[in-house]
């Protein structure tokens, strides 16, 4: 019988999806990342979720603000490079005191192959925290669900931007065949 860690290694995207349902998330804003591909498929298949594929990540910060004005909860899915695009727009949920949960898959982390991913990946947590975001990291599969749950609870209970960073050790590094 598989242990909990083995289940989590396989199922963490499905566990995030279950949490989005539990928290009644109705709007999902995203810029795709390979690490989020399974979760994105689950969201797209859900008729109760309105999924918007963005042209740039800060659109999602704005969209989640609009959703909250109208009484709907949303979440932003992106990779770490996209966090850099969000910086000034984070002034919107901070100043209005509105929830803004983000689930970020890391690049430029363990085992990165592409040099261009390293600067933003290395700065992701620092930049988010500099903009008043509560950041929690998950570096083992079994930590993903509790960490995402905390990110959603902190956002909707305390009205602020929050983020889970899912480490590259969980996702696996893209090696380009090397």
């Amino acid at each position: 019988m598989p242990d909990a860690a083995t289940d989590a290694a396989r199922d963490w995207p499905d566990q995030i999806y279950a949490l989005l349902k539990e928290h009644d998330i109705r709007q999902v804003a995203l810029v795709p990342d390979a690490g989020h591909s399974r979760l994105i498929k689950r969201c797209l298949a859900d008729n109760d979720m309105k999924v918007a594929t963005l042209t740039t990540e800060e659109e999602g910060i704005a969209m989640l603000f609009g959703a909250w004005l109208g009484g709907e909860k949303g979440v932003l899915l992106m990779q770490s490079s996209g966090v850099g695009n969000c910086i000034n727009m984070l002034s919107v949920p901070i100043s209005h005191r509105t929830p803004c949960p983000m689930i970020v898959t890391m690049r430029g982390d363990y085992g990165e192959f592409n040099p261009f991913q390293v600067p933003m990946g290395n700065a992701t947590q620092t930049v988010l925290e500099a903009m008043g975001t509560l950041v929690k990291r998950a570096d083992a599969p079994e930590d993903v669900a509790p960490t995402v749950n905390a990110t959603l609870r902190l956002a909707f209970n305390t009205y602020r931007p929050t983020a889970t960073l899912i480490g590259q050790r969980v996702i696996g590094a893209k090696t380009f065949g090397k």
Binding site: E58, E59, M63, F65, A67, E72, N88, V92
Partner: peptide
């Protein structure tokens, strides 16, 4: 939030 008005409108309109 310069540049965000239209997307705020989208989130609100969907909600």
């Amino acid at each position: 939030g310069m540049g965000g008005a239209a997307m705020m409108g989208l989130g609100l309109a969907l909600a």
